[in-house]
């Protein structure tokens, strides 16, 4: 079979998969077929609910399917590495798949990042390829393919991995969405456009007075809009409200970085 026929077969089967276990098996098969030793399909959120019976997917908590070495998964979750994994941080800055040794092209690598990379290698994962899964308005995700330390990436199948990773994420996301009682997106009224305008300027470090001048409204109105936005997100500070708006893709980085 050609690579494309394999991809089509995977897409068809992943759509029909009803249980997380079925999808996990499909992902294991195609990862091995492409020449990868390990995979991790995850939402970039607190992974504590993860468990081997995959109830975290069946109950709609989060996307997480992996065959990474068990010790590493445990350590990854308890140390909350997801929040500081250089590979995942890099995936937030890329739209398409990248090799793990290209991470420095996307982020400034710190000593903590180097420590995590070292621990990853010691856990038996060497080279890797990560396919970002950005869905505006939702938590970030990615499909990570990894090699046992000392083995090389299957270069000729990286384009295929891009397709498989994206379709696998959608299949898993759709499964999790269906299991939820509440939709993934907040249902309450969205921020008004004035509130968003104010938050974008808050994120640019503007004071109420400056925002009032820029928007041509009164300082009291600005205070009111920002207060309503804080209450909307139930956060105590204005900067947190601005961050939440960016996280929910109500604002993008380009809105807040002139």
């Amino acid at each position: 079979m050609t690579e494309f026929a394999d991809v089509e077969k995977f897409i068809g089967a992943s759509r029909r998969a009803v249980t997380p276990k079925a999808l996990d098996d499909l992902l294991a098969d195609i990862s091995a077929e492409m020449g990868f030793d390990h995979y991790a399909l995850i939402h970039h959120v607190d992974l504590t609910p993860m468990n081997k019976r995959l109830t975290h997917m069946a109950d709609g908590s989060l996307v997480a399917l992996t065959n990474y070495p068990e010790n590493w998964v445990e350590s990854y979750v308890t140390r909350n590495i997801v929040a500081n994994d250089p590979v995942l941080l890099a995936s937030h800055r890329s739209n398409v798949g990248f090799k793990w040794d290209e991470v420095a092209n996307f982020i400034k690598v710190t000593s903590t990042h180097r420590e995590i990379t070292r621990d990853t290698r010691q856990a038996g994962l060497g080279e890797g390829y990560t396919v970002p899964a950005h869905v505006p308005g939702e938590a970030n995700g990615s499909c990570n393919f990894a090699m046992r330390t000392g083995r090389s990436l299957p270069e000729r199948n990286l384009l295929m991995a891009n397709m498989v990773g994206s379709f696998a994420f959608q299949a898993a996301r759709s499964m999790v969405l269906k299991a939820r009682d509440v939709p993934m997106v907040r249902e309450h009224a969205p921020l008004t456009s004035r509130q968003l305008e104010c938050l974008a300027l808050v994120a640019r470090g503007k004071s109420d007075w400056e925002i009032a001048r820029i928007l041509g409204i009164g300082s009291e109105s600005v205070k009111h809009h920002v207060k309503m936005a804080r209450e909307h997100y139930d956060v105590p500070t204005r900067i947190q409200a601005a961050f939440r708006a960016v996280f929910e893709s109500q604002l993008t980085i380009s809105d807040v970085v002139p």
């Binding site: 690579e3 897409i11 950005h134 384009l159 397709m163 994206s166 994420f169 959608q170």
Partner: peptide, 30 residues
């Protein structure tokens, strides 16, 4: 552009690739 693939798929509709993506002018297109 494959950078938008996850977003396009997230609409939940039936979407199928017509071939393998290729690098065109530095972007991955499918």
């Amino acid at each position: 552009n494959m950078g938008f693939l996850s977003e396009v798929l997230s609409a939940g509709w039936r979407c199928h690739p017509l071939g393998m993506p290729q690098v065109v002018d530095g972007s991955l297109i499918g």
